[in-house]
Amino acid sequence: MNDPIGNEMYSLHVNGQDRAVMDAWVGESLLYVLRERLGLPGAKGACEQGECGSCTVLMDGDAVCSCLVMAATAVGSEIVTVEGLVEQNPTMAVTAHAITSQVTDVQQAFITEGGVQCGFCTPGLIVAVHHLLDKNPDPTELEVKESISGNICRCTGYGRIFAAVEAVVQVRKANS
């Protein structure tokens, strides 16, 4: 006997706001709920098993794979997605090259250093790099590599991503 789908109701705290989730199925991942129910498609799904990092979000200050969080169990947690980074890091916001949108310094560096190609891994990487630099403002090359070793990029071979992280570290050092 199949259970009906869609009888869960709960509220998640995402990017500083309480967001109601209606008619959900209990097995839905946080990734699915963010993307399909809350209109936040920034986190991406590419493996459904925590082996690519595309779905990385911050949960209570930790970078986690949102595909492996059962959404209904995230009630009461602080969740930050790529869409919320500018708001959550106002001091790091800069105006992107030739475009008036506000982005964070990490986002800016991914653009200027060539860390973006197809862009599918990018939101997860951006969240992971923010998380790294919050915890460790001056990481070694190996610390950078280890901290993003859970974020697969298939396009860049990572070289320009390392360059982007390095650029942010240098700018932040110079500004501090």
Partner: peptide, 21 residues
């Protein structure tokens, strides 16, 4: 943590009914 069980659910190997987190 969910890192095992959610894989089972995502891959359609498990359809949970009641959950205690």
């Amino acid at each position: 943590g969910g890192t095992d069980m959610m894989v089972e659910i995502n891959f359609n190997h498990l359809k949970p009914h009641n959950i205690i987190a």
